[in-house]
Design a protein around this nucleic acid. Structure first.
Lengths: 187, 187
DNA sequence: CGCGCGATTGAGTAATTTCAAATCTAGTGG
DNA sequence: CCACTAGATTTGAAATTACTCAATCGCGCG
């Protein structure tokens, strides 16, 4: 499990055994069942999560009946409510399991300690943040330039496996269309 | 002008005079006229830009007639085609001046050198990347949850000054609606 | 004065939403 | 193994929203 983390990190930076041991000691693992929440809107966000196996959904509840999917996080991804985590604020979104999931968690104090202690660690997250930012920009662009159908087709192309793991209702929400519209796109 | 940069950086991290001198020596300033391009789609992206004064637009050209505004960058903002800049690829978007503009530029080699040499510098950009990522996520959320009118109203609330500096056509593009639709939203 | 650009208005069309109802499917308890 | 139920998906029809294309308006500037 920690190996998954090490493999993940070493895709970007290489570590000595000591360095990894130090990093690793700041994480704790957690097993979650389908439907469990890591945090809900309004909670404190004590951790950033690395998904070892399983699938998470980051979502925003606008009203009692309206939920919106901001993103999915599966194996080898980091997820949290970034603003809440880094600034010790209450969550403005919820993080929930869509499958039985194993995560590694790190708290903000440990995170900051690692960032200032191990420069490589901060470098890793700078890389992650850059990539996340670029990916978000692409997604924004897809909202500006593309129709619902095109966004859907791009998603199928980019993440075919996701369609097998997630109900279409949630896919629709992620794409920003109603589930009925999505249903009518296939033919 | 370099002072603007120092003030900007010191909002996040504090620097000694030597540190700032070192950082500062990696930047060069450039003056641009309205309508000039810093780079166009397909160009190499040699620099990341810090806007000292003026206004830039990052845009994507889909076809001969279709342009889309990805973002605006004004005083105290960083802008570039991140993917192209960091990975030495060709630009997939263009960066253009909407006003007479002064920027400070840094090349990728200097940037990387500063990141590994001055940990605070990398820390600064980690902060920037985090905030950019969070802001992008908010904008994505606004596409998923909000109508054109609501997005427009939120923009007015968040950046009232922008409306005075930029033609509505570009605002419409930024919001992902046609200029005609935007025009009909006001009443 | 008149050109040219940006903004607005009108009319018809296309895409998407909403609400309601029908259908399908997987998991559960008997 | 079967019947049942909750959740997921699909379909229909009307209403809304936004788009396109075309024409017009308003204004600053040479």
């Amino acid at each position: 499990m920690q190996n998954t983390l090490r493999r993940h990190i070493e895709k970007v930076i290489s570590l000595t055994d000591e360095e990894f041991a130090h990093i690793s000691s700041c994480f704790q693992s957690k097993e979650l069942k389908k439907r469990e929440y890591l945090f809900k809107q309004g909670d404190d966000v004590n951790y950033m999560y690395f998904v070892v196996s399983g699938l998470l959904m980051l979502s925003y509840q606008e009203s009692l009946t309206k939920h919106h999917v901001i993103s999915f996080a599966w194996e080898d991804w980091w997820e949290t409510d970034q603003h809440a985590f880094f600034n010790r604020k209450k969550a403005t979104m919820s993080l929930q399991c869509l499958e039985e999931t194993t995560v590694l968690c790190i708290g903000i104090d440990d995170f900051n300690k690692l960032c200032s202690g191990v420069q490589k660690f901060e470098h890793l997250f700078f890389e992650k943040a850059k990539r996340g930012y670029i990916a978000s920009q692409q997604r924004i662009l897809s909202f500006i330039t593309s129709s619902a159908r095109e966004r859907y087709e791009k998603l199928i192309e980019l993440h075919p496996a996701l369609l097998q793991r997630v109900p279409k209702t949630l896919i629709a929400s992620y794409l920003g269309v109603s589930r009925e519209t999505l249903s009518r796109l296939s033919p």
